[in-house]
């Protein structure tokens, strides 16, 4: 799969499969976001995502959908991972929200993040606009084959320059990205703490193999990420925080072993809500 790029500009069948589920996930996020009203709770928003995708055939998850409202978009006061799970926090006018969902469909995995607000929120607008520079920086440095740990630090520096805090540091292992893969479709797919067991198995086996070869499926600020980008599909999720407001995107970056820089790394899909939004603002 890893060198699997068809003629320039076209995707292999496999990548098309990933792109399809990623689009489906973003469609879900947009549909649910459009239904959010004052008073809706995070749990309800998470359930709306689950149901929307179930109706469209999704049976397994990399992780169950998350929803964060208000200052929880910036993970204010988060200390333990359980705090990521949806709560009874209610949405209010002007509040920012983030939907984060990772469905598995026909054996392909997506993991996406969608940021928005109920009505106007100039601070989050600004954060979202400033995420564009991060998308560019990450792609550029991955193409340069810089060690992931260093790219992580450059993203950090850009955030600090912009005046923001790094909030992906709050994720388990502080990751800015993690690998995703194909998953075997099973009749019964239980989850563990919100994560699909099939996908966890995939990550674990990657971690074991990678450990032997000196790389990790988790892209972190730590020593184990001190290696050049590993071919594969990476769900990249830079997450900015600013005084109780957070914003992120999450989408798949394809890394290959091609020598052609353009082919060595590219975003799986450029037709996503945040990318369209940046284009419109210009």
């Amino acid at each position: 799969m890893t060198s699997a790029v068809a003629p320039p500009g076209e995707l292999t069948a496999e990548l098309r499969g990933f792109r399809e589920v990623q689009r489906l996930a973003y469609e879900c996020a947009e549909a649910v976001a459009a239904q959010l009203k004052p008073g809706v709770t995070e749990r309800e928003a998470a359930r709306m995502q689950r149901e929307w995708l179930r109706e469209r055939g999704v049976r397994d998850w990399f992780h169950l959908p998350f929803a964060w409202f208000g200052d929880r978009t910036a993970f204010v006061g988060f200390r333990i991972p359980l705090q990521f799970f949806p709560t009874n926090r209610r949405l209010e006018a002007g509040m920012p929200f983030i939907l984060d969902l990772a469905p598995v469909h026909k054996g392909y995995t997506a993991d996406i993040g969608y940021s928005g607000s109920l009505g106007l929120n100039p601070v989050q607008d600004k954060l979202l606009a400033d995420l564009e520079a991060h998308r560019e920086l990450i792609l550029r440095e991955v193409r340069e084959r810089r060690p992931l740990r260093e790219i992580y630090e450059d993203v950090d520096r850009l955030m600090v320059r912009q005046g923001y805090a790094n909030r992906h540091r709050a994720y388990p292992f502080g990751v800015i990205a993690h690998k995703v893969d194909r998953v075997k479709e099973r009749r019964w797919s239980p989850h563990l703490f919100g994560f699909g067991t099939q996908s966890l198995k995939g990550l674990a086996s990657d971690a074991i193999h990678g450990h032997r070869d000196g790389w990790s499926p988790l892209w972190s600020p730590y020593k184990f990420s001190d290696h050049p980008p590993q071919p594969g599909l990476w769900a990249v999720e830079p997450h900015l925080g600013f005084r109780g407001t957070g914003a992120k995107f999450e989408e798949i970056l394809v890394v290959t072993d091609s020598r052609d820089p353009e082919q060595s790394a590219f975003w799986l899909d450029d037709d996503l809500p945040h990318v369209r939004r940046w284009a419109e603002d210009k």
Binding site: P122, K126, R161, R243
Partner: peptide, 13 residues
């Protein structure tokens, strides 16, 4: 540049 950025974000919040 960084002073301008601080002023800009200050107005936002």
């Amino acid at each position: 540049e960084s002073a301008a950025r601080t002023a800009e974000l200050s107005r936002l919040i």
